[in-house]
Amino acid sequence: MNPQALMDGLVTGSMIGLGAIGVTLTYSILRFANFAHGEFLAWGAYIALAASGALGWLAPSLLAPIGPFSFGWSLPIAAIAAIALTGGLALLVDAMLFGRLRAQRSTVIILVMASFGAALTLRSLLEFIFTAKPAYYTKALQIALPLGGGLRATPDQLLSLGLAAILVVAIHLLLTRTAIGRSMRAVSENRQLAGVVGVDVRKVIRTVWLLGAGLAAVAGIMAGLLVQVRPYMGLDLLLPLFAAAILGGIGSVPGAMLAGLIVGLAEAFAVQFVGAEWRAAIAFVILVAVLLFRPQGIFGRPE
């Protein structure tokens, strides 16, 4: 077994995990599978690309790599802008589409269908603006550092892993220790009762979109940094995101992260046997297995 698969799996898995947290939160609180979530990853990546490019053009010194990393200060600054703007995009889509459908008391499945339409629109819009050609945040090459045990990782990879770990802990604490977190869990369990108790459900919904889309932007930027930025990156990640959200148990943040890592590692190890061209099928196999054997997921309770 190639130990490098472990590192690749962890890095991909943490990306999938961050995206799956958004899927699991919107699913448990807004009660529908959002097929447009992958597009938030792609939009986050492209907004960061555009912002970073603009910053580099204004102040070329920002492009000089920071320490061992492949990118300059333009990228972290652009990332913050991307997180905020992707959150804004999610709020905009909710105000224009999902919120109106909720107000019309539409069924779950109409919301799912609308998210499908929104996904195609957002994706094609990216393709129109940026074309289908892959793009990169930086052209700098990185040398993978030996970590011992035959494991090697680039500084960018290690940074991504650390950032993902910090974000998961932060989101977990937010949900379990803060008032807004309690409100989110309350709405997720029983929206009507939450209203009766005085929880402003609209505020909770806004928070969920901001959190979910913000995390998606981070995951998208990681994917862009470690692989490349493409309009179809969100679509390609959608199945792994759903597989991880369901495997982790809908509504569970630690579950989504753990399941993201499982999906990422499974992909990395499986491609060594079946070839990289089958990578996308791994998530499908995991999804089918979960639905078959434990549809409530690792941390979910049976309905």
Binding site: F35, I109, V112, L239, F242, I246, A280, L287, L291, P295
Partner: peptide
């Protein structure tokens, strides 16, 4: 058979998976 007894949108996700797998 795998998904109809589960949540309504699990069927949607599973069929999406079918399309990806068939394409692959």
């Amino acid at each position: 058979a795998l998904t109809i007894r589960l949540r309504a949108d699990y069927l949607a996700i599973a069929t999406f998976g079918v399309a990806v797998a068939v394409q692959l």
